[in-house]
Computed example of a mutant assay.
Amino acid sequence: MGHPHGIGIVGLGAISKAYLDTLTHASGIRIAAVADLDASRAQAVAEGIPDAAALTVAELLASPEVDTVLNLTIPAAHAEIALAALAAGKRVYGEKPLAADLAAAQEVIAAGGDRVGCAPDTVLGTGVQTARVAIDDGLIGRPTAATAVMVTPGHERWHPNPDFYYQPGGGPLLDMGPYYVTALVQLLGPIRSVIGAASTPRASRTIGAGPRAGEVIPVDVETHVSGVLEHAGGALSTITTSFDATRTTAAPIEVHGDEGSLVVPDPNTFAGDVRLFRTGDTDWRTLDPSAGYVDSARGIGLLDFVAGEARASGAIALHVLEAMTALLQSARSGSRITLESTVVRPELVPLMHRDEWLALG
């Protein structure tokens, strides 16, 4: 790819800081340009990055200094920016979901193939990767089932502009579900079919923070979604994602086999304890990290992608999006839905420390 590899960032909202905190320390890449609908915001960000240019989106896509576009726009714009970047001859790595709907995501992958990468990259940290080693090494025997639970009262409590969470492409499943479903695919392999149920208890939400506090916004998506995922290997995962619950004591993910069970840390984070209980044990024990990018953060998936590993690939993102949109379709129709796509689990991430992965690229 050449060194350093030029990155152009489109979209400089709240998540961009987390990416910049990682990418500005990576030796294999450089931030060549940034763009945002708010030109003043782009200028302010560029001023904090050596040699970065504040450009319009069109200028960034045309820039010969940009090899890969990091697409951090809102979900409704993911496909448009990705397709434009691919048409300009760039590679593209985007925030999840791959697109706001399945047809648009399929168009992106048809246009770009392996030139497309996509978050979440949290599954590349030591949490999910260590759990995967335990499963692959047979510590729980044959995997039979898993549970995934994400509940929150809703992002409008803290986000100053939460509108897109309640518009098509948002909702708890498409917003937070990618972390959980991607983790389940990492752990148990591709999904064969799904069946789901969903509800929208409230037609509106009230913004609780920022200059728009007190403003009422409409809800146009399902805000509580439950479902069952049938994995190709035979295991069944149950998932619940909700913007209509306050708190839970459930583990974010548990995986069960015929010889033991695993507690997997929050897939919205990169690390955390993986706990194992085998048949005959008297208590849970915590496993030492055995795989994954150590002390990683958002942006590690982009570094992995630029390095040619592509463990956070567009193909996985498409498969996960199909599973999630099929769950919503199933909830509306009451029917079990068989997925059209499948995917091969990517290579396990070897245990790699920060100084090593910051040199990727």
Rank of each mutant, 00 (worst) to 15 (best):
G260Q: 04
A62C: 01
L55P: 15
A44M: 05
G170T: 07
T56S: 15
G171R: 05
A235Y: 09
D21C: 00
T130L: 02
V225N: 06
T182G: 10
Q329Y: 09
R212E: 11
V320A: 08
V45S: 05
W158A: 10
G8S: 10
L98G: 04
D295N: 13
S313I: 10
C118T: 10
P265R: 13
R285E: 12
A145P: 11
G292H: 10
G171E: 10
T147F: 00
G280H: 09
D67F: 14
L174G: 14
R132V: 12
T248L: 13
P211F: 04
T269R: 11
V185I: 04
R275N: 13
P218A: 15
T286M: 03
A88K: 05
D273A: 07
L23K: 15
G138H: 08
L321N: 12
H231Q: 07
G257L: 05
L139M: 12
M324S: 12
V225I: 14
T286P: 03
G28C: 04
P168H: 00
P50R: 06
G301T: 12
T338W: 03
V320P: 04
L229F: 03
E47F: 01
I135V: 13
W357G: 02
R41T: 05
G113A: 02
D220P: 08
S333A: 04
G361L: 14
R202F: 11
D266V: 06
A77C: 04
P153M: 01
G308R: 03
I337R: 13
V343L: 10
V10N: 05
V116D: 02
L339R: 05
L173M: 06
P160I: 03
G280P: 03
T147M: 13
T24H: 05
K90P: 15
A148H: 01
P265K: 14
L358M: 13
E259F: 11
T152M: 15
T282N: 06
V264K: 07
G48W: 01
H25L: 02
H5G: 00
A146V: 07
L276N: 08
A203P: 13
V194D: 07
D51G: 00
L302H: 10
D51S: 07
A315V: 06
W158G: 08
T241M: 14
Q106C: 05
L302S: 02
H78N: 09
T240H: 01
Y166V: 14
A213W: 01
A145L: 02
L287A: 01
A62M: 02
T68H: 06
P160W: 02
P252R: 14
V344C: 00
S296K: 15
I253K: 13
T24C: 04
A14D: 06
A33S: 12
S199Y: 08
P172G: 05
A82D: 03
T130C: 07
I253Q: 13
F277H: 04
L321E: 07
L61W: 00
V219E: 00
I316S: 02
N71F: 06
A87G: 13
K96S: 02
G233A: 09
E230D: 15
V264M: 03
T56Q: 09
T73S: 01
R91D: 11
P50W: 03
V181R: 01
H3P: 00
S330G: 08
V344G: 01
H224N: 10
P350A: 13
R285I: 12
G11S: 03
I337C: 14
V344M: 00
G171P: 15
A119F: 11
Q129D: 14
G171M: 08
L23S: 13
A183T: 03
G125T: 12
L61A: 03
